[in-house]
């Protein structure tokens, strides 16, 4: 997690607007589809869940692993990018 992906930088660099859930770092097409099935179709919905969990990365990672079947790295990447986005724009 020391290095960040291009996707991470793209997401953290600007307001998320109406970006799809797959714009989140660590969420690819398959995980995005699983999340969409549960109603998490936009990135801001996932952000809402992240905020509901009080920006607790650990709990959020647990949730994301349960909800989408993401592995620890993917969930951690998503949590990191949401946290950094919140630091910049919230």
């Amino acid at each position: 997690m020391s290095t960040t992906s291009q996707k991470h930088r793209d997401f953290v660099g600007e307001p998320m607007g109406d970006k799809p859930v797959t714009a989140l770092s660590g969420i690819g097409e398959i995980l995005g589809k699983k999340l969409e099935q549960q109603g998490f179709d936009k990135a801001f919905v996932v952000l809402g869940q992240f905020l509901l969990l009080k920006k607790d990365s650990e709990i959020f990672v647990e949730w994301l692993k349960d909800a989408s079947g993401a592995n620890s790295r993917q969930a951690g990447s998503c949590a990191q990018c949401l946290r950094e986005w919140c630091d910049s724009f919230l």
């Binding site: 869940q49 969990l53 607790d56 949730w63 349960d66």
Partner: peptide, 10 residues
């Protein structure tokens, strides 16, 4: 945090 439908399981 708030325990709602989406967070309860967690």
């Amino acid at each position: 945090g708030p325990i709602v439908a989406s967070t309860r399981a967690v």
